[in-house]
């Protein structure tokens, strides 16, 4: 740059850009460092208690690790082969799928109905929210105690109520034909509040103009629901559906406390089987292998959602 006719100005300009870029790269370097420093506490906790157990669990699934910590030798794919051939794994996966199906449908549909009804503009919003959302904040122990008591065959409220009409109610949680339904009812009661709030928020984001225009066109309440509310809620429904599928697949707490997986294993979900294998049967390696088979199912659901969601956003 110092060549040719530029005698005075160019070197200075070059000097200045040099100086500037040096400053910028120094700043960039310090920003790199600071970025990592600010992320460090989270990343350390994340690595230690999420990434490491995930990888360690994968390793364990290839070993014969027991709860006593003995026999950690490598057994290759033995656990995986055993898990895939274990009828208990398939029954518990089947139970999980059955529970997911039975619980997801009402948890999406009823949540939407509740939100639409509450959103009609009744007074006492806090009261509706309290009734439908409060159970979501309760611990699974609390919910299980409430419902074990409701379902009590002789003393509980449900069978007492049925008795007033001369109906002899079943032993809800001990009867193989009603146990799963009973657990599903409890789950719907317990967790609907979350979906309800998501729907309520989505409803309140629908522009009023849409309804006003429809009114001018002479549309009634039902017509407006079908051609405005429902389509406008579609993205929320996809979200609620996936979050609900993921939550239902992970069912453990309430079943562990209400039926213990019984009667005769009819309500035992896969996570409960993993728990039994690992902590009652002391076979941590085998339990890990089953965990991973289950984990893959969860990943498939998540990826399916991402595909649907991205396709949706491409369309939009």
């Amino acid at each position: 740059m110092t060549t040719a006719d530029g005698l005075v100005a160019p070197p200075r300009a070059a000097d200045r850009t040099d100086h500037l870029s040096a400053g910028r790269s120094r700043r960039r370097r310090s920003e790199n460092l600071r970025g990592w420093i600010y992320c460090a506490p989270f990343l350390i906790a994340f690595g230690l208690f999420l990434i490491w157990p995930t990888l360690y669990g994968l390793w364990m699934s290839f070993t014969g690790t027991s709860l006593a910590g003995t026999n950690t030798q490598f057994v290759g794919l033995d656990n995986w082969k055993e898990a895939l051939g274990d009828p208990q794994v398939w029954t518990s996966l089947g139970n999980t799928a059955w529970f997911t199906l039975l619980s997801t449908i009402p948890l999406v549909v009823i949540a939407m109905v509740l939100a639409v009804l509450v959103n009609l503009g009744l007074p006492g919003q806090w009261f509706w929210r309290l009734s439908f959302f409060m159970p979501f904040l309760l611990a699974s122990t609390v919910v299980s105690q409430f419902w074990n008591w409701m379902y009590n065959p002789q003393l509980g409220l449900i069978n007492t109520f049925l008795g007033w009409f001369g109906i002899t109610g079943p032993a809800w949680l001990q009867d193989p034909s009603t146990a799963m339904i009973a657990v599903v009812i409890t789950t719907v009661w317990w967790t609907i509040g979350f979906n309800f709030l998501l729907y309520l928020a989505a409803l309140q984001n629908i522009p009023d103009q849409l309804y006003e225009a429809a009114s001018l066109d002479g549309a009634g309440g039902w017509r407006k629901f079908l051609s405005i509310t429902l389509p406008q809620l579609a993205p929320t429904t996809v979200l609620v559906l996936v979050l609900q599928l993921l939550a239902s697949l992970k069912v453990f707490d309430q079943i562990y406390q209400m039926t213990g997986g019984g009667p005769g294993g009819t309500t035992r979900p896969v996570l409960l089987y993993i728990y039994e294998v690992g902590f009652t049967g002391y076979r941590l390696g085998y339990a890990s292998a089953i965990s991973y088979i289950f984990f893959f199912l969860i990943i498939i659901v998540s990826i399916a959602y991402m595909v649907i969601a991205s396709r949706r956003s491409v369309k939009a």
Partner: peptide
């Protein structure tokens, strides 16, 4: 902040969303 590895961290965190805590209980 724009820093090297930012996208990596972000992707890592998104992946973390998919790990069900219950599966981690044994390890």
């Amino acid at each position: 902040l724009t820093f090297v590895g930012r996208t990596l961290i972000y992707l890592l965190i998104i992946a973390g969303l998919m790990i069900p805590a219950q599966v981690l209980i044994v390890p």
